[in-house]
């Protein structure tokens, strides 16, 4: 069983929380896609959404570290290194970011298809690659610390506490 399989299994196990976050990401990604002037008016416009996204992924990382506590203990007990646990946790955040970005693109495409409003020039909008990069960076930045903290399971302390 590879680390990737473990990651996918954990991803599926926390599906509800991930699903909720993906909906938030899809809507915020779509909002970013329809917003004008983000690239052209400089990085100022990015600070708000980025901070919000990093905060969301911090919440996700903290949730995974906490909700999976027993699983991390079991994995450490059978010999998994902390780096494996770290990759499983941060990998889930990145997967949520990627799927959220894909959903936001889908929403954008559907809305554009059915929209009667005149199309705004593409160069003034946040493109799909931009959304994915923003989500991906936010996922790494936001979930890195809680995942790193969560992966450092102290077996002796945890077993002594049982």
């Amino acid at each position: 069983m590879s680390t990737f399989v473990l990651l996918m299994k954990q991803f599926w196990a926390h599906g509800r929380f991930h699903g909720l976050l993906m909906i938030v990401l899809a809507l915020s990604g779509w909002r970013l896609r329809t917003r004008e002037g983000i690239w052209s008016e400089g990085v100022d416009d990015l600070i708000g959404p980025s901070a919000l996204l990093v905060g969301l992924f911090y919440l996700l990382g903290s949730y995974l570290a906490r909700a999976g506590e027993e699983d991390w203990l079991q994995l450490r007990l059978v010999g998994a290194k902390p780096i494996v646990l770290f990759l499983i946790m941060i990998g889930q955040a990145i997967l949520v970011a990627i799927i959220g970005a894909i959903f936001s693109e889908l929403i954008h495409q559907v809305m554009t298809m059915f929209s009667t409003a005149p199309t705004r020039p593409m160069e003034n909008r946040f493109n799909s690659l931009g959304v994915m990069i923003l989500f991906g960076i936010s996922a790494i930045l936001g979930s890195a610390y809680p995942s790193w903290r969560g992966c450092r399971v102290d077996l002796s302390e945890r077993i002594g506490r049982r």
Binding site: W12, A13, Q74, L75
Partner: peptide, 14 residues
């Protein structure tokens, strides 16, 4: 260990 020993996200075989 005392208490929970299995990962709920994995099958019995896994």
């Amino acid at each position: 260990l005392q208490g929970r020993n299995l990962l709920e996200s994995l099958t019995v075989f896994e």
